[in-house]
Design a protein around this nucleic acid. Structure first.
Length: 943
RNA sequence: GGGCGAAUAGCUCAGCUGGUUAGAGCACCUGUCUUACACACAGGGGGUCGGGGGUUCGAAUCCCUCUUCGCCCACCA
């Protein structure tokens, strides 16, 4: 591995701009990471291959090759990158496999549109030329989105970039198909499927999306053939399919129609004779209680037709125009032939109206399936398609989630997953497209040999020597996607080092929309072909929406181009804003009309961080600093101890938020683990709070005079400051890698010449909490209370920030020691000359002075100032009343807790940590009761 | 039609197994160029936690119910 020193010549501190300019840094830094191959994973370093590191694998949901990065991709990839960068620092061999998807229908549609604009069509071009043209289109556009992913900092292993239609993955697709075929899990079925008359292909159940539609329920009278005075009224939403009716079904228990079962009816318009049949499928309560049966144009009717061995005449062509094949043509009157289905509906309804067959039209709301790619109303169509038998594949996938091999987050999606798998239906995998993996099945027209599935192209029939013909169709694009976690690692080559080292993987990060399309099918394929799960955690994030909660989309024009954000505020600001603003499974709302406001949290934080860096460079300087390990503990001040404590807390909290990395040795998540971790927003919040509200707001302020004073203590302060900032940057690197890396490179060197980590922050170690923390840091918390009291007094009395004041502090009891030792620090932070008066000392305000009297709790109970506001008796009485109320409330709570602790069933049955918590609470409460009692005695006299 | 989720400050959301004065970011108000940062600093205002009932010493948190949104699934022709 080549390494490039990350630290270019440090700029003159005075020339550092006061705001972070991402654009000047990001692209060049990314190039340096690439040159150093910081994100390339090595199979041989993994324990499974005899190495020493745990693998951590994420496969990237492959974007469509035709797509341009939108902010949803940004969110999705930011999450994955945070996880990968975190684990890479934590010492795992982290592999993030990127790639793209050929996106069958979507891509074919785009190219067909191009052709149409040129006055051509795919039919005019011919299959071979069309595929070549599409491939070329993909080549020119396919890389764009990957470059955009790089621009937002994605640290995927680009040396392993995969493409579903590339040779190795195509091999996997063929292998999977042939294996399933040989196992009897792939079969050819003749049935009614969803057909998109615009895309001219069949669709799977998942690709035909429901949409609530307001339509009509048409009640139509069919008269009896041998007695025109009798009739049955059928109810249908699709009168245009009437020409294909082969029966009318009634419920066997429906007495209204019992006498008519077996009789023949006259089909309106074409006069065909069709029987009345009895079938359970019919619900007597719904509509008129009689259903017209059109087997070729409705999946349920097809089932009914099968049960009653009825014909299935097709009365529409592939483009959903009224027409018929062969004998069925007789069913469609000449004047309707070639008419589009919706116009045909109008015409047929008017013909029915004219003949009096139309009884009524009732308003009716129902769900109509639409093509998920083009929105066209799907037409049920009888045809021959390839299917995957799903039940045997679903069982292990169900089991994997039920037994805790896989957890789905947020948890509520587990129920959705289980529900879907339990009711799973076979998967139609053939598509009447040209762009995709051609189905590896061969037919012999010469003899009766059944279709042959073959791993290699074959041309002659083994039986009769005749010429074989390959199936014209291609596979559903998801048939390659569902193999993604195994095919990208080298499957079906079982000896592939990547497959051995990195499978099973760890986490899948995606949106809930493709839980069925993709997530669950990958689990099925992993279980079936590898005998193991593809990942132990499915992380489903929310959707990016605008302020009206609308999904961002091209057609609505409410999208945000992540590249605009990168240009304006940088990739880090984009990443930070999304990660920090995204609760588990919660949608992210951004305002496309106000990028500044939307990304302010990220931008502001980066500026803050940048300025801490500037402070370091200007005040700490570039001279070597001592590593913390060589600093004598007794030379550490209270503030030093405090910030090191806070750092430990931030690290621990971050680890807790990110959670258990993987299930334990059993390979199964425990109930508690199942919902733990993956709280990226909480992690971001912890890191921000530490850097901004603790390091910058407090520690940095205490350190200024120490640095200015120079000497040994200045060296201690420099060491602690640099150590703390170093670790803060480590903590932040996964979320905001560019700025973190940039600032880290500017840290002054260590006096012992030791390296801080690798050449880059992104490959250096994730921080650890100290094994043996030092005592004393808590005193700083006491000091903080006095500082806050002093500042509040300044503000209340309208003292200008620039005006220096004098303050007298009256700490009581346990505060005394801390306040005494922190008096100088408190003075600096309040901008005051501080005098500490111990118990009993009296105070009087003097001209130009502000006196702060603080009780044990650090609270101002009697501020007296030279500005003339003597504390009144009324105020004292008010305060006494308040304290007494508080005491009462506290005593009540204490009694409740004590009664709980006195309860045998609680102490013996509740979890130990809960009982311990209650005990601690009891201690705290009784201490508080004591403190309040003392306070009341002091302020209000004996009660 | 079935299932699930949400309702907390002006906006977007945190609030773990019920516990002291319900938090953050953005927005708002007051003051400040306090020599890293006005994309900042200091101080502050603002919530009867959707309505109603219940359990409890104690409920944003648990139970019931209603209302309003949202999501997923579904062969009402």
């Amino acid at each position: 591995m080549t390494t490039t020193p990350p630290n270019d010549t440090a700029p003159d501190p005075d020339e550092l701009p006061t705001t972070y300019r991402a654009a000047e840094i990001e692209a060049a830094l990314y190039a340096r990471w690439q040159a150093a191959a910081t994100d390339v994973a090595h199979a041989e370093r993994v324990t499974r291959s005899g190495g020493t590191r745990a693998p951590y694998t994420i496969v990237m949901p492959p974007p469509n090759v035709t797509a341009i990065l939108h902010v949803g991709h940004g969110l999705n990839n930011a999450v994955q990158d945070v996880l990968i960068r975190w684990r890479r620092m934590a010492g795992d061999e982290a592999l993030w496999v990127p790639g793209t998807d050929h996106a069958g229908i979507a891509t074919q549609n785009v190219v067909e549109k191009q052709l149409a604009a040129e006055g051509s069509s795919r039919q005019a071009l011919g299959r071979e030329a069309f595929v070549a043209r599409t491939a070329q289109f993909v080549e020119t556009t396919g890389g764009e989105i990957l470059n955009q992913l790089k621009a937002i900092g994605s640290s995927a292993d680009w040396s392993r970039t995969a493409y579903t239609l590339a040779a190795p993955l195509s091999t996997a697709v063929t292998e999977a198909f042939v294996r399933l075929f040989e196992e009897g899990l792939v079969y050819r079925g003749h049935r009614v499927i969803h057909w998109c008359p615009r895309c001219m292909t069949s669709l799977s159940d998942e690709e035909a999306e429901f949409e609530e539609t307001q339509g009509g329920m048409y009640h139509i009278r069919y008269t009896l053939a041998d007695d025109p005075s009798q009739s049955i009224v059928v109810a249908t939403t699709r009168p245009e399919t009437l020409l294909g009716d082969v029966a009318v079904a009634v419920n066997p228990t429906d007495e209204r129609y019992a006498a008519l079962v077996g009789k023949l009816l006259v089909l309106p318009i074409n006069g065909f004779r069709i029987p009345v049949i009895a079938d359970d499928y019919t619900d007597a309560e719904f509509g008129s209680g009689a259903v017209k049966i059109t087997p070729a144009h409705d999946p349920n009717d097809f089932e009914v037709g099968m049960r009653h061995t009825l014909d299935a005449p097709i009365i529409m062509d592939a483009e959903a125009r009224m027409n018929g094949l062969g004998d069925a043509l007789k069913r469609v009157p000449a004047e309707l032939r070639g008419i589009d289905r919706f116009e045909a509906r109008e015409r047929i309804v008017s013909m029915l109206r004219d003949t009096g067959a139309l009884v009524k039209i009732v308003q009716h709301q129902h769900s109509v399936r639409h093509c998920y790619r083009c929105g066209t109303v799907v037409e049920p169509r009888l045809s021959d398609q390839w299917f995957v038998k799903m039940a045997p594949l679903a069982a292990p996938a169900l089991d994997a989630v039920r037994t805790g091999r896989i957890r789905i987050m947020p948890e509520r999606w587990e129920a959705v997953y289980v529900n879907w798998l339990e009711g799973i239906r076979d998967w139609n995998i053939s598509r009447q497209l040209w762009w995709g993996h051609r189905i590896p099945v061969y037919y012999c027209d010469g003899c009766g040999t059944p279709p042959i599935a073959s791993r290699t192209a074959i041309t002659t029939c083994a039986q009769c020597g005749g010429t074989l013909r390959q199936d014209e169709d291609v596979l559903d694009t998801w048939f390659s996607s569902w193999l993604w976690p195994i095919s990208t690692l080298g499957w079906p080559n079982e000896a592939s080092p990547d497959l051995k080292a990195f499978y099973p993987g760890d986490v899948l990060v995606t949106a809930p929309e493709i839980l069925f399309f993709w997530v669950s099918r990958m689990i099925m394929s992993g279980m079936h072909f590898m005998g193991d799960v593809p990942y132990h955690t499915v992380y489903l994030h929310g959707t990016v929406r605008d302020m009206q909660h609308r999904k961002m989309s091209k057609s609505l024009g409410n999208g945000i181009d992540p590249m605009d954000v990168v240009r304006l505020y940088g990739a880090d600001a984009l990443r930070w804003t999304m990660i920090a603003g995204m609760g588990l499974g919660v949608d992210v709302l951004l305002d496309p009309t106000d990028l500044e406001k939307s990304f302010a949290p990220g931008r502001n934080f980066l500026t803050k961080l940048w300025n801490i860096g500037r402070f370091l460079l200007t005040k700490v300087g570039t001279e070597p600093v001592q590593p913390l390990s060589v600093i004598a503990p007794e030379s550490l001040t209270i503030a030093d101890r405090w910030i090191l404590d806070r750092l430990d807390a931030a690290i621990a909290e971050s680890n807790a938020s990110l959670g258990p990395v993987r299930p334990g040795a059993s390979g199964r998540w425990t109930e508690a683990e199942r919902t733990a971790g993956m709280r990226l927003d909480a992690y971001a919040d912890t890191a921000r709070r530490f850097v901004w509200n603790e390091l910058a707001d407090w520690y940095l302020e205490t350190v200024k005079p120490r640095l200015a004073a120079g000497g040994a203590d200045a060296d201690v302060a420099r060491a602690v400051l640099v150590h703390t900032f170093d670790n803060a940057l480590r903590l932040l690197q996964p979320i905001i890698p560019f700025i973190a890396e940039t600032l880290w490179a500017k840290l002054p060197p260590l006096t012992n010449g030791a390296a801080r980590g690798g050449s880059f922050l992104c490959t250096s170690a994730w921080p650890d909490v100290r094994a043996t923390p030092l005592a004393g840091g808590d005193d700083f918390e006491i000091g903080r209370k006095y500082v806050l009291a002093g500042r509040q007094l300044r503000s209340d009395n309208k003292v200008k920030p620039s005006q220096r004041i004098t303050v007298e502090l009256l700490p009581t009891g346990p505060d005394a020691r801390a306040v005494q030792s922190l008096s100088a620090v408190i003075g600096d932070l309040v901008r005051a000359d501080v005098t500490v008066l111990l118990n009993g000392a009296s105070t009087t305000g003097s001209v130009g002075a502000v006196t702060v009297v603080v009780s044990g709790g650090g609270e101002i109970i009697a501020p007296v100032s030279s500005f003339g506001q003597e504390i009144s008796a009324a105020d004292t009485a008010k305060e006494c009343a308040r304290l007494k109320t508080e005491l009462d409330a506290t005593q009540k709570i204490l009694a409740g807790v004590q009664s709980k602790l006195g309860n045998e069933s609680f102490t013996s049955r509740a979890k130990p940590e809960v009982v311990d918590g209650a005990r601690a609470q009891e201690r705290d409460l009784s201490q508080k009761v004591d403190a309040l009692t003392r306070k009341i005695e002091a302020l209000c006299g004996t009660r």
